[in-house]
Structure formats: structure tokens, C-alpha cells
Write a protein that binds this DNA or RNA. Structure first.
Length: 465
RNA sequence: GGCCCCUUCAUCUAGCGGUUAGGAUUCCAGGUUUUCAUCCUGGCCACAGGAGUUCGAGUCUCCUAGGGGUCACCA
């Protein structure tokens, strides 16, 4: 049985670094038919935010990561933690420390001044005297004083930390509330975690948590410390370059499958494969294959993946997704033509929506350069003749029908395709680029096509004569 | 600063002692297209540096440099 978890603190939204470790954990649990748990690390009551929690759950829902059982809130388990703290106190594995914050600060300053590493000096470790008046004690756990703490990390290999690096850290604040490293270890053990996959900024917490496991007699899980994601300059990810709310990717028109595919390939690979369906991720993912080094966020690759997934998403589904971007074409009788004509030239749903609007709405203006170039010489008479040709044709429906009309027209007129295509493009779309004319006409229909040609002749022709 | 981790094209990566160091994104060129995009073909581009070990090192060891993480009554 494999049990993994994602354990965010509700102090901010979910960003892609967190989403990636969540994905890795989810994949590993699901791949093995195990359980994936969600736990909220909200022991610091003053920093919690309901909005942050809601945002995290919303992001999970969007990308389709499901978790087993109820969400566990550490803030609701204080009684439980207290039992374990009391037990450690009774067994002499933890002790009350009456050092005030001021004293601690002073000690730290002193140590720093001597060029030493700030470290609690253990002065109350074996204290038996009368405690000072008026000081609410914190509770510290007894960490080993010599030797080293060794563990096998599934990603980094063997990690050895000298015991001198781990001091008797605080497991309960003076107000009685437990602290992070203590509750993480207790919960991971109690929740039956077998594999902890987390960011490698937690690497240094692991020896501390192992101290708790040891003191409580719990069996530690396997640890996998996943390297960070850096920005495109190789520095720490900030909001500017991708550390934004995962939901922001949705708003910017990314597909969850693209984002997940992008993230799974950051620090992990399977041979030369770039495109992974969810099934393939489940098939091949293994945390032991995660790279040791940090990787950089690369927007170009994400966009490429997104374009790929847009191209390969069924039109019906795209039409549904486009609702959120102000484009309502689910009931449009030419919905298929519309998306066939636009999905291959869109990197995001935002772009796709723009492209669709550009076809559906009459050109508000004609690009001056394009108009000048396309509407010269006999362009006007060609367009007029083509409009007539369209009106006299029967049974035009498919893009291929329109293509045939164009073909016979240019043959009859003995002109090149461009002589018709360029002015037609400007007349229908107002610019020189875009989908094929046959596709656009199939979407617009004869009536609208002829109307746009007429309008363009009127407006551009008038300007030029 | 102490401790820990990391280091293959600009970027994501393959490589697990013997390869013309492979793929993908970006970029460039050509083809396809009435245009743009897609797509196809091709090209540019890397083992951080230095010592070892070895017949042979991107692969193993050490050193240097660079980057990152961490040193809370935050998580």
C-alpha cells in the first residue's frame, strides 16, 4: 500500500511548484492503487486564510487531482498533538524551556557575533531547579547531541546531517500550540504515510522530523525531495514568472492537461517522450526517476504543449471551454468549421476566442496596409464578379464546396489564386492573415460573405477613388 | 558565514565506462499553404573548470568555481 499526501499551509494560493509535488504524489499513489491524502497545515492560527484554502481546493478540482477521505486540518487536532507532547515530557524525551524570547535573541546575537551558527544551547535540557517566575515555557524535544542523522532520500540518495546541526527545537510554543516539524511527523505517522514527496526546501526539516519519529517510536516513511522550479533566469520563482496562482493559468487560457504535462516533464522524463496522457503518466511515473537538479520554468514549452492539446481537443469540448472566454458557439450550426479553422493557430483559449471573434464579427476596420496592397488594380471588379458567382452557385456548404467555386472562378477569369484570395481575405477579415477563405466562407455562408464583400468595396473602394 | 544539495545545447531532458553525445522547445533555412498558423524536412547550439582512477570518463573520486536550499515560539 502506498500512501502519499499533499500538505499545504493555507497562507497563499497554490502555485505550480506546489502543484507539481501534488501531481507527483498523486501519480505515485494512484499508480500503486494507494491513497492520496490532503492535509492542511494550519497550526499557526494567525496566518490562516479561508480564501487560500478555497483556492487550493479549486485548483485541485480544475486539474482533476482527487484526494481520498476528508481533508485533515491540523488546527482541529491540537488535543491529539498535546497527548504526544505530554507523553514525551513524561518520558523525559522533551522538556520545558524557560528561556524568554529576549534571552534567546540575545544568545543568537552573541553566537552570530562570534561567527557561530545560531543554536539553542540546551541550558534547560536537564534543568531540575525552580523555574523563573512569570515565564511561560516552550517545550523542546531532545535531539541527539552527537553522531549524525542519516536517511535515504529517494531522489537525492543518502543524506547525512551532523547531530550538531539539529538543536533541541521547539515542539510547542509558550501558548501551548504545537509547531510544524512536530505535527508533520506525528500526522505523517498517524495517517499512515509510506512516501513523502515534497519540495527540497524541506530537506533540512527531515532530520528534525526524524528526531520526532525516533522519540515517539514511529517508523519513518520514504522521503523524496523534489528540486525546486526556478524562473527562466535560473533564480527563485516569483509571481512575475510563473509562481502565480494555478487558477491564473486557467484564466490565461491554458488547458489543465497541458499544464500537468508541462509540470510532469520538469525534473522527470521517460526517454524521449514529451506528450503524456494521464494514463501514460500513471504508467511510467516513478519518484526514483526524479532529477536531482532544479529546473527552470519555460513558458515557450508550456505554450507549445497547450497548442498541442488545443489542436487535439474535440471541438465540442472546446466550445464548452470557450464559454468562459466570452465565446458562445456551442449551438452555432457551423461550430465544427469554426473550430477546425481556428484551433490550429491558437496557443491558448484566449487566442482561440479572439480568432473566432475575428471571423464572426464583421471587420471593424480594414488594415490600411493590407487594404492598399490587396485592393489595387482590378481587385474590385474581381470581387464583384466573385460575389455574383457565389450567389449563382447552388448547394454551398462545406469548405470544399467553396474551394471548388474559387477554383472554377480563377480558371474562368484566368487569374492566379492570389488575385482573388488577397482582396477577398481583406474584405472578409479586414487583414492579410488568417484561416483559409474556403473555411471562412463556409462559416459565414453566401449571404454574409457577399454582404462583407459589398461593404468592403464600398468602404475601401470609396477611400481609394 | 556554517551546513546540505545541485551543475549535459538558451530552456526541458536522454545518457547509467567505449555514442558521429540523442530527443523536445526556442531560433534560423527550405517545403506545403492564395496569406498566417499548423504540418514536413534540414540546420545552429551542450558535457562549468582542473586534477586524478582507467586501455578508455559526460558517466567514478577529489578540488575549484557557480547556482540553489536552510539556519524562527513560519510552514
Amino acid at each position: 500500500m502506498v500512501v502519499t499526501r499533499f500538505a499545504p499551509s493555507p497562507t497563499g494560493y497554490l502555485h505550480i511548484g506546489g502543484l507539481r509535488t501534488a501531481l507527483f504524489s498523486w501519480l505515485w499513489a494512484r499508480k500503486n492503487g494507494g491513497r492520496f491524502l490532503l492535509r492542511i497545515e494550519d497550526t499557526d492560527l494567525s496566518r490562516n486564510s479561508d480564501e487560500a484554502l478555497a483556492a487550493i481546493l479549486e485548483a485541485f478540482d480544475w486539474v482533476g487531482l482527487d484526494y481520498d477521505g476528508d481533508v485533515v486540518y491540523q488546527s482541529q487536532r491540537f488535543d491529539l498533538y498535546k497527548q504526544y507532547i505530554d507523553r514525551l515530557l513524561e518520558e523525559g524525551k522533551a522538556y520545558k524551556c524557560y528561556m524568554s524570547k529576549e534571552e534567546l535573541d540575545a544568545l543568537r546575537a552573541e553566537q552570530m557575533a562570534r561567527g557561530e551558527r545560531p543554536r539553542y544551547d540546551g541550558r534547560y535540557r536537564d534543568f531540575t531547579g525552580t523555574p523563573p517566575e512569570g515565564v511561560a515555557p516552550v517545550i523542546r524535544i531532545k535531539a541527539p547531541r552527537e553522531g549524525e542523522i542519516v536517511f535515504e532520500d529517494g531522489v537525492k540518495g543518502e543524506i547525512r546531517i551532523a547531530a550538531s546541526e539539529v538543536d533541541d527545537f521547539i515542539i510547542a510554543r509558550s501558548d501551548g500550540t504545537p509547531t510544524y516539524n512536530f505535527v508533520v511527523a506525528v500526522d505523517d505517522a498517524l495517517m499512515g504515510l509510506t512516501d513523502v514527496i515534497r519540495g527540497d526546501d524541506h530537506l533540512y526539516n527531515t532530520p528534525k522530523q526524524l528526531v520526532v519519529y525516533e522519540a515517539l517510536g514511529f517508523t519513518p516513511p520514504r522521503f523524496y525531495h523534489v528540486p525546486m522550479i526556478h524562473n527562466e533566469q535560473g533564480r527563485k520563482l516569483s509571481k512575475r514568472d510563473g509562481a502565480m496562482d494555478v487558477m491564473e493559468y486557467k484564466r490565461q487560457g491554458f488547458l489543465p492537461e497541458a499544464l500537468l504535462n508541462f509540470l510532469v516533464r520538469l525534473g522527470w522524463s521517460h526517454g524521449d517522450q514529451e506528450i503524456f496522457s494521464r494514463e501514460e503518466m500513471l504508467e511510467w511515473f516513478d519518484p526514483h526517476d526524479i532529477n536531482k537538479s532544479a529546473s527552470s520554468y519555460n513558458l515557450d514549452k508550456l505554450l507549445w504543449l497547450n497548442a498541442h492539446y488545443i489542436k487535439n481537443t474535440p471541438n465540442e469540448k472546446l466550445a464548452k471551454l470557450l464559454e468562459e472566454f466570452g465565446v458562445h458557439i456551442a449551438d452555432h450550426d457551423r461550430m465544427e468549421f469554426l473550430l477546425d479553422a481556428t484551433k490550429e493557430r491558437s496557443k491558448t483559449l484566449v487566442e482561440l476566442a479572439d480568432h473566432i471573434r475575428m471571423i464572426l464579427e464583421r471587420p471593424a476596420e480594414y488594415d490600411p496596409k493590407a487594404a492598399k496592397k490587396a485592393f489595387k488594380g482590378e481587385a474590385l471588379s474581381i470581387l464583384r464578379a466573385f460575389a455574383e458567382k457565389l450567389e449563382s452557385s447552388e448547394g454551398l456548404h462545406l469548405p470544399s464546396d467553396y474551394h471548388k467555386v474559387m477554383e472554377t472562378f480563377v480558371t474562368e477569369q484566368e487569374i492566379g489564386f492570389g488575385k482573388l484570395g488577397q482582396p477577398l481575405r481583406v474584405a472578409l477579415l479586414g487583414k492579410m492573415t488568417g484561416p483559409g477563405m474556403d473555411e471562412v466562407m463556409a462559416i459565414l455562408g453566401v449571404e454574409e460573405t457577399v454582404a462583407r464583400i459589398g461593404e468592403a468595396i464600398e468602404r475601401i473602394g470609396a477611400e481609394q477613388s
